[in-house]
Nucleic acid binder design. Structure first.
Lengths: 312, 312
DNA sequence: GACTTCTGTGAGATTTCATCACATGGCCCG
DNA sequence: CGGGCCATGTGATGAAATCTCACAGAAGTC
């Protein structure tokens, strides 16, 4: 009687990566394998469990409810394992440590990092994903990227450098969108999806809408932006998502944003220690500001945002 | 830039099983492989990590500090994964569900289960490991095994059937034992190891000792009995361990109990719903009582307990 | 309607993993 | 102190899992 009767752990890892990224190709990149390997692993897992984890056409793959549930439990478990693995003592110079919101790292920072590396090949950057509190000293953080929202506290001795505006708007699956009127009232009547990372998203957005809005039929909270986005793609409801995170999914048609995007009250800031920010951290901060300046804005008019493949 | 740079998950699983059992052979049984496979996996893991996870002679292998830390983080992570995996809808008759303390299951219940199966081949038993609260209805539990301690609450409608006395005493590694006098005072001056599962262990035991006892130099708490035992074997300090759990380790010389064992205030009880315990649950409870009666007691005198291979 | 993007899949190569059998080292016992 | 016992380490070998490559299919874009 074996205590643990688990399916292949490698298959679970592949599935978890797929669930976070929403596309097998990206999961394959993360795990340094081909997309075929991911496809096989997920199929294998579904066979073994006897449960469908994905659904929809190949080009717009979504998670099923079971898949979303499984992935949400797997992510923190793998995080825990990753955190526990003792790192061999680092040789060489200390890298520049950047603490960053996980989804922002995945969807914005890491894709742009090669440009920083190209400009400063001598600076090794290590991205630590975290959205919690931190301490420059004890965690060895040189620079942190966070949302600036009311009531959130950072280490007292932080200098805030906003480097990107925050545009957000309601996003949902095209199938769900087809069932309602593309108006604020129509959108707001649907189930609402929230994220623990930035619970103010919905209320921030709704405050800017004119007129009275209906109450949602239900609400649901997710631990991470990426699962919020996957839940929206799966048709579970409407999420208020940041433009930067959903751009790709809008372009591919997995999501639609019938009301476009508006500037939110938050902004994305780089935090550096008030005294003694390292020269490398300053370089990185300046680079963030420049990248933020050149990151495309969402199309200004609601109509244009709907299905356009704008950006990139 | 892969987000997760984890060592082989299979190796981590093998190591976690080894850490829980304290012996590769048992871990191999759990995972249904040979001891050689476990040995290779752990060696592989150590190579990959560049950190020693085990130490000591082959016949008395212990965890290093790094190994203990890693294992303590891995266990809940794997538990989480296991809990998240959707089970295919169970065919056939519902098994008898027994909720049991993890270490008790591992060290006492599961080794004896074959005898129950032999007597009642028609009853399928499923052991759920848990030391938390539970509900007969919602968790589908037929019978639960818990420690009866003051202040602990069970479902209100529980019938308690004590089926085994609890003998416990301080245990520590022979190396550490050699550095002190084998007296209560000598033992108590060492670092104390506690478990969250039964934090009263030390105070229960100390209350029964005559005279004033010195204060410990330090204290440390573990989430599970099995890590408490491994920590003691690693020489981190003294644990007050239940006779039933450390019997094997005493016999093999990994641990020593210079003061023997005394009856603790707790006892081990079977909990069944006051009304409507299933006939199968009653059968199982009666079997537990009988097995408890025939489980050997620790040797009564302190001297005899030290290195004897008594029991079994 | 050609082009792009992403996933599914067959065949074959490769890596990983486990087994078997035996060696080794520590310990107990007489 | 040497034989027996127990648990782990290891070389050789085979099986299984996993990956890659190349191509096909499906959906969407322009």
């Amino acid at each position: 009687m074996a205590r643990r009767a688990l399916p292949s752990l490698n298959a679970l890892r592949a599935f978890e990566a797929f669930a976070r990224h929403g596309r097998m190709t990206l999961a394959a990149d993360e795990l340094c394998v081909t997309h075929g390997a991911i496809s096989r692993q997920i199929r294998h897992l579904e066979d073994q469990l006897g449960v469908a984890l994905t659904e929809g056409p190949r080009s717009r793959l979504r998670l099923t409810a079971e898949g979303l549930g499984l992935a949400q439990a797997l992510s923190p478990a793998f995080d825990q394992i990753e955190a526990a693995v003792p790192r061999p003592p680092q040789a060489g110079p200390r890298p520049l440590v950047v603490s960053c919101l996980p989804t922002f790292a995945m969807k914005w920072l890491i894709p742009r990092l090669p440009r920083f590396q190209a400009a400063h090949p001598d600076i090794a950057v290590r991205v630590m994903e975290s959205n919690g509190p931190f301490d420059y000293q004890t965690d060895g953080v040189d620079l942190a990227i966070r949302m600036r929202v009311a009531g959130q506290t950072y280490p007292a001795d932080s200098a805030e450098t906003p480097f990107m505006d925050h545009f957000h708007g309601p996003v949902l699956s095209p199938e769900l969108a087809a069932t309602i009127e593309p108006t604020p009232a129509g959108i707001c009547a649907l189930p609402r999806l929230h994220t623990r990372t930035f619970p103010e998203g919905w209320s921030d957005w709704a405050r800017k809408m004119p007129g009275d809005l209906p109450n949602p039929v239900s609400e649901q909270e997710f631990d991470h932006y990426f699962y919020l986005i996957e839940a929206a793609a799966a048709g579970l409801g409407v999420a208020v998502g940041p433009w930067a995170f959903v751009q790709r999914d809008l372009a591919s048609g997995r999501l639609t944003a019938p009301l476009g995007f508006i500037a939110g009250e938050a902004s994305i800031v780089a935090l550096t220690p008030l005294s003694g920010a390292s020269p490398r951290a300053v370089l990185f901060r300046d680079w963030l500001v420049e990248e933020g300046r050149t990151t495309p804005r969402p199309p200004p008019s609601p109509e244009a945002a709907c299905h356009s493949g704008a950006g990139r």
